[in-house]
Write a protein that binds this DNA or RNA. Structure first.
Lengths: 194, 194
DNA sequence: GTCTATATTGGGATAGAC
DNA sequence: GTCTATCCCAATATAGAC
C-alpha cells in the first residue's frame, strides 16, 4: 500500500533538502518527486517552511533507528559503537560519491535566526545525537572504571564529524574525514587505555 | 577617496553572503548595500555566480592579513599562534551575537557540485588556512624536537573549528566551541609535552 | 483530498539613453 | 561607467471546481 500523501511529501523533501539544500530546492520539485499536485501540497502544509519543520521532526524519529541502531546492534563495546556510527557517515559519503553528508548539518547552515521552530528542531536533533553518543562514553566510563565528561566528549565527536564532513563535501575526497579520525581515535583511546 | 565600484560590490556581497548565505542574498540587496545600480553591477559581473567567485578570491587575499596576522604578531610560540587564530573566531561570534562564523564554511555548505570554479576557490581557502596552521605545527616539531604529521594536525584543527562553529550558530551559544576546545587543546599539549 | 489553472511576488538579468 | 526602465522566468502560494 502507498504511503499517505503527507508522508510522501515529507520524504521527497527530505531527500531533496539533503542533496541540494533548503533554498536550492523548489516546492514544484518536491511536488513532482512526491507525485502530488499543488492543491494537495498546500492542503497539508501551509508553507515550505512548515514542511521543513515536518522534515526535521521526521529526522528526530529516524535518529535512533537509522543512525544509531545499525552500529549499536553490530557492536557491544560502547567505543566501537561510536566509531561505528561515524563509519556510517563515511559509507554514505562514499556510496553517494560525496553527495550526502549529514542532513541536519546541511540544514543548520541554511536556517536563519528568525526560523525559530526549525532551529529548535535542529538543536533537538543535535542534542539527541549527542545524548546517544554520550551514553556510550558513559558506559565506557563504567566498564573501564574512569570518569571523563561524557557530554563534552559527545560534543567533540559531533564537532569532528560535522567539521570533517564539510571538508569532504568541499574537496570531494574522503581524506579530510580519515585524517581527522586518526588523531580523534588516538585521543579517545588514550582516555580509555591510559 | 571612495573605493572603486567593483570593490564596493565585492565587499557588500562578502558581508551579506557571510551573514545570510549565498542563496538567501538577492542581487538587488547587494546593489543597494553597495550603492550601485543594476547597470553598473552587470558591467562588472556577468552573473551572481561570477561575483561569488570574486568574493572567494577576495577571501584568499584576506586570509593571511585578517585571519592569521593578528595572532601571529601577538604570539611567538607556534602553538599559541594556532589557538590565537581560533580565539579570533570565538571573539567574532561573541561580538556579533552568534551571527558571523566562518564565511568559507558557510559558502562551502551552499555551493553545488556544478559550481566548479567556486568550489576550487573554497578549497584553495581551506588549503591556505591549513597550510598556515601546518607551518605552526611544523615549527613546534622543530623547536620541541618531535615529529607529528603537521598537515594532518592542521586538518584536525580546521575540522574542530568548523564543526564547533556549526553548533555554535545553531545553538546560539558559545558552549560547543569551548567544550570542543578543552579536549582539543589537551590533545595538542599531550603531543608536544609528553 | 485532489485536480487544473492562475495569481503574485521576487529573482536574476538586459536594453538603451546618457 | 552609470542611469532608469523593464524583461523574463521561476518561485511560492491560492482559487475554485470536482
Amino acid at each position: 500500500m502507498d504511503k499517505d500523501t503527507k508522508q510522501r511529501i515529507i520524504e521527497a523533501a527530505q531527500i531533496l533538502f539533503w542533496e541540494k539544500g533548503y533554498h536550492a530546492t523548489g516546492v514544484a520539485e518536491i511536488q513532482k518527486r512526491a507525485e502530488v499536485h499543488s492543491g494537495s501540497f498546500y492542503h497539508f502544509f501551509k508553507s515550505k517552511e512548515e514542511l521543513l519543520e515536518a522534515v526535521l521532526e521526521f529526522y528526530l524519529q529516524l535518529l535512533y533507528p537509522v543512525v544509531m541502531a545499525p552500529s549499536f546492534e553490530k557492536y557491544d563495546d560502547p567505543i566501537e559503537r561510536i566509531f561505528g556510527v561515524l563509519a556510517g557517515y563515511r559509507t554514505q559519503l562514499i556510496e553517494t560519491n560525496f553527495t550526502l553528508g549529514c542532513p541536519i548539518g546541511k540544514l543548520a547552515s541554511e536556517v536563519e535566526k528568525e526560523q525559530v521552530r526549525a532551529r529548535q528542531l535542529i538543536n533537538a536533533n543535535f542534542e539527541g545525537w549527542k545524548k546517544h553518543i554520550a551514553d556510550c562514553f558513559e558506559e565506557a566510563n563504567i566498564r573501564i572504571g574512569v570518569a571523563h565528561n561524557s557530554m563534552n566528549l559527545a560534543n567533540l565527536t559531533l564537532t569532528v564529524m560535522e567539521g570533517s564532513l564539510l571538508q569532504v563535501l568541499a574537496e570531494q575526497s574522503i581524506a579530510p574525514f580519515d585524517n581527522a579520525m586518526i588523531p580523534f581515535r588516538e585521543y579517545i583511546e588514550m582516555l580509555y587505555k591510559p
